[in-house]
Simulated assay, not measured.
Amino acid sequence: MQASYTGLDGKRYNAPHTFDNRTDARGWLSIQQAALTQGEWSPVEAARSAGRSKARTDSLGEFAQEWLRTRVNRHGEGLRPRTRVEYERLLSGALSPLTGERLAMITPEAVRAWYSSQMEGGNKTQTARAYGLLKSILATAVQDGRIVTNPCMIRGAQNASTGKKVEPPTSAELQKILDTITPRYKAAVLLAAWAATRFGELTELRRKDIKIVKSGRDVDAIVVDVARAVTHTTGVGFTVGPTKSAAGVRSIALPPHIHADILVHLRDNVGDFPDSLLFPASDGSTHLAESTFVKHWYPARAAAKRSDMPFHALRHYGATRFAQTGATLKEIQERLGHSTVSAAMRYQHSAGRDIELAKRMSALAEM
C-alpha cells in the first residue's frame, strides 16, 4: 500500500516505501503530520527521502538520461550537442556494464571492479573520461538525495592517460607539409602552426575575422580575431557556437613571415565578403568537415614522414615557438586561449606586445 501527503510547499511527497497494511500507512502519515504541525518538517529532507525511495527502482541509465536533459554548466547553459553525443557514447559503451544497475546498488566495490575491468582492456583515456562522467552523474544523485554518498572514490582515476605525448613537427617537417598540402589549405596549416588555432576555431574563421593593419601601402600586422568555433555532430550536423571556453575569445597577431601567404589566400580563395569562410567545403559556402580535410592532411604529413602526427600537433608547435620568444606565461595563455587565467587578466592583453612577439617568431622560422 502506498502513502503520500502534501507538504508545506504545496508539493506531493510519497512514502519511501510501500506498506503491508492500512494501519502502517496511517502511522507513517501521522508522523509526517506531527512534523508539519510542530515545525520540524523540511522539504529538503522530504525530497531526500523520496529520492532514496526512487533510487531503489531507478537504474543508472534512467537517471543518466534525466541528468543529460537537465545538466547545465556554470553559465547556466545546457550541454553542447557534441558533448551530449560523447556522453551518450560513453554511457552506451564503457559505462554499459553499470547502466542497468539500480543507483542504490552501485557500491564503491562495484565501481572498482568496473574500473579494473576497463583498464585491463587497455583503453586508459576512455576509461578516465567514463569514470569522470560517472562521478559527475552520481554526484548529482547525491545532491538529489537518490543516494547517500558517491561511490566513485578511486584516487587519480579521472586523470589516467595513455602517456602518449603529442610531438609537434620540426621546422623541416612543417615546411615539407606546407610544400605538399593541397594549395588552398596551405594557409590553414600556417594558421594552425603559427597562431595555434584549434580546428573548430580555424574552420569557422571568416573574412571579417582577419584585420589587416597598414601604414601607407605596407602591412604592419595581420590580426586574427577568434570569437566562435564550429563542431560537427553525427545526426546533428554543423553547430556554430562559442569557443571551447570564455578564454578562447582572443586576438592573435600573425608573425610577419606568413603575411604574404595569408594575403594571397584571402585574395585568391576568400574575397572581400565579410561572412565568407576562410576554409569552406568544396561548395564554397558550408563548413569544412574534418573527415574531408584529413584526405589532404594525411598525404602531407606522410610526405614529412610524420604519419603519427595529428593536426592538433600544429597547435603545440605554435605554443612552443611562441614560448621561445620569451613570452610570459600569461601571454602564452592568452594567445592559446587557455582558461587557466581569469577573465579579468584577458582584458589586460596588449595588442602591441603580441605583435612584437609575433615578429620574433618570424626570426625563429629561419632557424
Rank of each mutant, 00 (worst) to 15 (best):
I222S: 10
A303N: 01
A303S: 15
L263N: 03
G284R: 03
A221F: 12
D283M: 02
G284S: 02
T243C: 10
T292H: 14
D283I: 06
L266K: 08
D308V: 15
V219R: 07
H259W: 09
L277N: 04
A260G: 11
H257I: 15
K295G: 05
D275P: 07
G248K: 04
D261M: 14
L314K: 08
R250T: 15
V270N: 00
H296E: 10
F273W: 05
V236E: 04
R301W: 07
V270C: 00
S285P: 00
V224G: 09
L263H: 04
S285H: 06
A313E: 05
P255E: 11
L266P: 06
V224P: 12
F273S: 08
F311N: 09
D272Q: 09
P280W: 10
G237Q: 00
V270H: 00
D308A: 05
V223S: 02
D261N: 12
G241C: 01
F279A: 10
D275M: 05
T286Q: 07
I252K: 06
H312I: 04
F293M: 04
K305I: 02
F238V: 05
T233V: 10
D225K: 13
H287G: 12
R315G: 10
G241F: 02
R306K: 00
D308Q: 08
I258E: 07
A281T: 05
T243M: 07
T286H: 11
A313R: 06
S251F: 11
R301A: 07
G241N: 01
D275E: 03
V240D: 04
A302Y: 07
H296I: 01
V294T: 05
T286C: 01
A281C: 02
F238Y: 03
H265Q: 04
W297V: 11
P280G: 12
V230F: 02
P299D: 05
L278K: 04
S282E: 12
H265N: 07
T286G: 11
H316K: 08
H287C: 06
V249Y: 06
G271P: 06
S307W: 11
L263M: 14
F311K: 08
S251K: 15
A227H: 04
V224I: 15
S285K: 14
D268E: 12
D218N: 15
P274G: 02
H296S: 12
A247C: 13
A289E: 13
F273A: 11
R306Q: 07
F279V: 08
V223R: 04
V264Q: 08
A221N: 10
V236M: 03
S251T: 15
F293I: 08
D225W: 08
L314A: 06
G271Q: 03
F293A: 09
W297K: 10
P274C: 01
L278E: 03
G271V: 01
E290A: 12
L314T: 01
A246R: 15
D261G: 07
T233S: 13
D268R: 03
V230K: 01
T243F: 05
